[in-house]
Amino acid sequence: MDWISALVQGTLLGGLYALFAAGLSLIFGVMRLVNIAHGDLIVLAAYMGLSTTVMLGIHPFVALLIVIPAMAGAGYCLQRAVLNQTLGDDILPPLLVTFGLSVILQNALLEGYSADPQKLSAGGVETASVQLGGLSIGVLPLLTFLIAVAVIAGLQFIFYRTAIGRAFRAVSDNADIAQLMGLNKAHIFGLAMALALAVTAIAGILLGVRTSFDPSVGGARLIFGFEAVIIGGLGNLWGTLAGGVILGVAQTLGAKVDPGWQLLAGHVAFLVVLAVRPNGLFPRVAH
């Protein structure tokens, strides 16, 4: 029963990892940009949540109404002011610029909030649980997982059913020709980053409610998100959810054996997938 419980918890944890991964996957899909600062942006969102909840005295979930647009706006500006200039055939500029951004964010947060661990307080929902077939399942992890599913379904809808999603795919296919269709790629990339950081805002708030955080934890969030993307297969959002679940399950099962093995087990699962299926478990089928 313990093992089944660990399995369920790992699956639900995978929802959070899928949220870390979704933004990463989205911007890579649209503009082939790998954002090293992604984890730090998740942490930034958590701190934004902290400031809004403390200042306005509101619930973290209500704070989303402020943090999501704030992060989206920041994403749009960041893309247009800085990141668009790095895009091209050379992979060095985007990597090194986002790496610099990561260091800046981390230290700015350190300066503003100190290194003390913080946590978002969500009240009763944190400890509430439901009984399901003899298993006690936390409401918060369950909610996180359901939000992850909803977010990925939403992204899937935007990508394949809306005009802006069509524009994302067109610019990703061939930015020059997309310009001929009247699409300003600088603007489209800005919108993609805005959408990615809106998802990041959700991920950051849920992270902050679930565990304590400090300015240094961004790197690990980037790695979890990245592992979920690679396990699931590049360019497949549902695959990313599956990748997150596999990572979450590996971590909780590892922790069950020995608490010190939690993170190691996740990395090992990633390396095994990389060794056996380098394109991930569910790569996007080529048209």
């Binding site: 790998v34 090293i36 990597l95 790197g219 980037l222 790695i223 990245f226 592992e227 690679i230 990395h267 990633f270 390396l271 990389l274």
Partner: peptide, 8 residues
């Protein structure tokens, strides 16, 4: 992605 792989 190689870069993040080295970090892992």
């Amino acid at each position: 992605y190689f870069a993040i792989g080295t970090w892992v």
